[in-house]
Design a protein around this nucleic acid. Structure first.
Lengths: 337, 337
DNA sequence: CTGAAAGCGCTAACAC
DNA sequence: GTGTTAGCGCTTTCAG
C-alpha cells in the first residue's frame, strides 16, 4: 500500500512542510520542558507528522542522545518451562518504563553467552539481565558488568553483582507449615539434589517449621530423590512402607509430587485426607490438573523478572558485595493438603 | 574495573592510535571485499582495537548503513507453555543469521500490539514476526506489513501475510494411524472446540486415516470435550461406558489425555494394552511423566519460529494471497499406544 | 592501498 | 519562540 522501499520521511521533511526548523519539530515531538511552542505551531507540526506518516528513527535518536532505552536479557530458554515467566515479567516492566528488551538465549554455552553480551554492548544496552532456569550459583559472562547487571534466579558466588532469587527457605517453611496446620506431625521431605540452593533453602525452612511446632526433625523422613515423577513415586512408596510412616509429605518439586500421587493412590490412601502432599514450583500444568489439585509453592518468576528490571536503574551499587534479594514464594492452596 | 562512564572509544581513536584514517579501520573491521589492506596494517588495527577495547557503536552503524539487523517479535507470552519454544527457535535462527530479536509480549491487547509494532518500526526492524500461542486466525496489528511480516502459528484470514502453522491434519492422521497400526479398529476422537483450526485439521486427519484403513467413521465416537483434564476424564468415561466402547482414543490434547488416563485406570483397564491412548501437543511435562508415557504428536514450535525467521528474508511475496505454510507435526512414541 | 569528505537523522547548546 | 549549528560514530563514494 504505502511507500515501502522509498526513503523514510525525516524530521526535516516535517519541518519543511510546516515551515519551521527541525529544532521546533524536535521540541514538540519530545515535549521538551521549557520550550514554549505556541499551540498553533504545535498543532500544525503534529498534523504534518500524521499526514506525512513521519516515524522517528531510533538509531539516529540514540546516536544523538546517547540513550538507547535497550535492556539486554541473556537466558537459557531451552530447558525452560519457566524462562517464559521471567521474560514476561521483565518485558512488561521494561515496556512500562519505555524500554525494550533485547533477548538472546544462550543455552549455558559460555561462548555464546559472551558473544551475546558483546553484541548487546555494541548495541549499547543500558543494562543486562542474566537469567537462569533453576536457582544456582553462576559466573556471569565476561563483559557483563560494563553496564549495570542483575542476575535473575541465580547469583554470583563472589557477590559482585546484584541478584534476585526465590526465598526458598520461606517457601519450604510455608509448605511445611501448611502440613502442620492440617494436623500432621510426621512430615517427610523428599528432597532434590542436596547440593543445590533450592534444596538447602527448602530444607532449612522445613526444619524451622517443624522445630517451631515442637516437632523433632526425624532424619529418616528426609530422603533425597531423583527430581522427577519416578523419583517421587519411588521415595513416596518407601516412606509409606516405613514402620512409622509419615502422614504428610513435602515434595521437592511438583514433578516428584506427581509421582507421589501414584504411590499414595496405589496404597489405597486418599490424598488430602490420609496423607497430605505439598509440592514446589507450581507448574500449573501439573499442580492444576492433578486430581485432587496439588497444594504447592509458587516460584515468583514474573516478579523476579520485573523487579530485576527495576533494580537495573536503582541504587547503582552498594559498597561491598551484594547479597541476593530474596523474593517471596507464595503458597498456592489446592486440595492435596 | 574499566572505565565505566567515560566516553566510549571510537573508531577515530583507533585510527589515531594506528596512524591511519577511519576509513582504513572501517575497512579492516568490516572485511570489506576489494579493499586490499596490507597484512601489517590490518594487524596493527586489530591490535589497537584490542588494546583500546574498542567496541563498535551499533546505532551509528545502523544510521550510516541503513541496516539494523533487528527483527521484531510480537507475541502473547503469558498464556504460554509454548511461546518459549517459538522464541527459542526464532532467536537461534536469528542469531545464526547475525540478527537480533526485539521481543515484546502483547497479551492479545490490540493497543499494546499496535504500539509494539510502532516502536519496532521506529527501531527500524527489518522484519516482524507475529506469533500466537494457539493456532488461529488473526488480524495482524496495524503497521505490520510496512516491513516483511510473517505470522507464526496463526494466519490472516485474507491471506495478506505469509504465515506458518502446524500441519494439524497430518498430525491427526499420524496419531490415528498409530492406533490403527496397534490393532485398534474402534477409535474415538475426543475433540477440542470444533471451531478451531486444530480441531478441524486433526479431525480431518483422523477420518482420513480411518477411511484409508477401511474403517467406517462412527459419529458416536467423535465427542467434543472441554480442553482440560476434567474434560478428558469425563468424555473418556462416557466413551468407555458405551455398549460398544472404543479400544483406542485419540485425545485432542495432552491435558485431556491426562484426564483420560484416570478414567481408563478407574475402569481397571490397562493403558497401552486394553486401550490405546494418543494425545496431541507433546507437553513434555505431561506426556513424559504420565505413567505409562503418553504417545502424542508434537507441535513444531521451534521449527516454526526458525523457519519464520528465514521466510522473512526469502521470497518477498508471491503475487496473490499467501497460503499458510504447513509444518510437520512429528509423532512422539511412548507407551500409551 | 588509503584518506578526505559528505552524509545517515536526530539532539541540544547557543543565538537571535 | 524559533532557527543555526555543531556534533553523535560510522559508512562509503571519490580522489589521489
Amino acid at each position: 500500500m504505502t511507500d515501502k522501499n522509498q526513503r523514510h520521511v525525516t524530521m526535516g521533511d516535517v519541518a519543511d512542510r510546516v515551515g519551521v526548523s527541525r529544532t521546533t519539530v524536535s521540541f514538540v515531538l519530545s515535549d521538551r520542558p521549557g520550550a514554549n511552542i505556541p499551540a498553533e505551531t504545535r498543532r500544525r507540526v503534529l498534523e504534518a507528522v500524521r499526514e506525512l506518516g513521519y516515524r522517528p528513527n531510533a538509531a539516529a535518536k540514540s546516536l544523538a542522545s546517547q540513550r538507547t532505552h535497550l535492556i539486554g536479557l541473556v537466558t537459557e530458554i531451552a530447558t525452560a518451562p519457566f524462562a517464559g515467566a521471567i521474560i514476561k515479567g521483565a518485558q512488561e516492566q521494561a515496556w512500562k518504563d519505555g524500554k525494550l528488551l533485547l533477548i538472546v538465549s544462550a543455552e549455558r554455552d559460555r561462548q555464546v553467552e559472551d558473544a551475546a553480551v558483546e553484541t548487546m554492548l555494541e548495541r549499547r544496552v543500558e543494562g543486562i539481565l542474566y537469567a537462569t532456569t533453576w536457582h544456582r550459583a553462576v559466573t556471569p559472562p565476561a563483559g557483563a558488568g560494563e553496564v549495570p547487571t542483575v542476575l535473575v534466579n541465580c547469583f554470583d558466588v563472589e557477590g559482585r553483582y546484584p541478584s534476585i532469587v526465590p526465598d526458598e527457605a520461606q517457601g519450604g517453611y510455608d509448605a511445611t507449615r501448611r502440613l502442620i496446620d492440617a494436623g500432621h506431625r510426621r512430615i517427610a521431605f523428599i528432597a532434590l539434589d542436596p547440593e543445590i540452593p533450592a534444596t538447602v533453602g527448602r530444607r532449612e525452612g522445613y526444619e524451622r517449621a517443624l522445630l517451631e511446632a515442637g516437632i523433632e526433625p526425624d532424619e529418616t523422613l528426609v530422603v533425597p530423590g531423583y527430581a522427577d515423577a519416578e523419583g517421587g513415586y519411588a521415595r513416596a512408596h518407601e516412606l509409606l512402607a516405613l514402620p512409622e510412616p509419615p502422614t504428610g509429605i513435602f515434595c521437592g518439586n511438583d514433578r516428584m509430587a506427581m509421582g507421589a500421587y501414584d504411590a499414595v493412590k496405589e496404597r489405597g490412601l486418599r490424598i488430602g485426607h490420609d496423607v497430605g502432599l505439598v509440592g514446589f514450583d507450581n507448574q500449573e500444568i501439573i499442580a492444576g490438573y492433578l486430581r485432587p489439585g496439588l497444594t504447592t509453592v509458587a516460584l515468583p518468576f514474573e516478579e523476579m523478572g520485573a523487579r530485576a528490571v527495576q533494580m537495573l536503574t536503582e541504587s547503582p551499587s552498594a559498597s561491598g558485595a551484594f547479597a541476593p534479594l530474596l523474593t517471596h514464594c507464595p503458597l498456592v492452596e489446592r486440595a492435596s493438603a
